[in-house]
């Protein structure tokens, strides 16, 4: 995907950012979830423009597939019985918006000003090479992460389990 043109990048960026902003703004949680799915899909496209096809696939599988469904289930399981909350936004939301804008600006400036050592051509390797990296040099962190997942799942089950009536 060498020479990916800048105008196209703007379109992809819009697919990521606009649904994200909408997600935070919607009052209905289901709408928010759908906006989130769109945004995640946009991130997958960003990965493709970065030569990271495997990442894009994983993004679609894990975020768009698994996590989104999980969140939708959670939303449905917790339908507000005592009516909607009156305030969707927190009291400090008015202060948070400018703070977030400034954060974006400052982060952008700080990141943009860095002097980076550019590679002449895209560096993200092919899938085979990536897997070799993942299962040789980074085998230990990989296994550790699997352990973390296992513990998290056990913990989640314990937390969400209905407590026995005494």
């Amino acid at each position: 995907m060498n020479g990916f043109s800048t105008p196209l990048f703007y379109i992809v960026a819009a697919i990521v950012i606009i649904p994200a902003v909408l997600m935070v703004s919607f009052r209905n949680l289901i709408y928010s979830a759908v906006a989130m799915i769109v945004s995640f899909t946009g991130v997958a496209i960003v990965f493709i423009t970065l030569n990271a096809e495997l990442l894009a696939a994983a993004q679609l599988l894990i975020y768009v597939g698994a996590i989104s469904i999980l969140i939708l289930f959670a939303i449905m399981l917790t339908k507000q019985r005592s009516g909607e909350i009156q305030l969707f936004f927190h009291r400090q939301a008015w202060a948070a918006l400018p703070a977030a804008v400034i954060l974006a600006a400052v982060l952008g400036v700080v990141l943009g000003r860095g002097r980076y050592n550019y590679a002449p051509r895209p560096q993200n390797p092919a899938t085979a090479q990536l897997s070799r990296l993942l299962f040789n040099q980074y085998a230990l962190p990989f296994e550790l992460v699997s352990l973390v997942l296992l513990v998290a799942i056990a913990g989640a089950i314990l937390l969400a389990k209905r407590e026995k009536r005494r």
């Binding site: 400090q92 703070a99 400034i102 400052v106």
Partner: peptide, 23 residues
């Protein structure tokens, strides 16, 4: 919790600002 998070966000902003000014 969100009060704390907001304070964290402002703290991050302050740190970045200091970095910007110093460099």
């Amino acid at each position: 919790i969100q009060g704390y998070l907001f304070a964290m966000m402002l703290g991050l902003l302050a740190l970045l600002a200091v970095y910007l000014i110093l460099t």
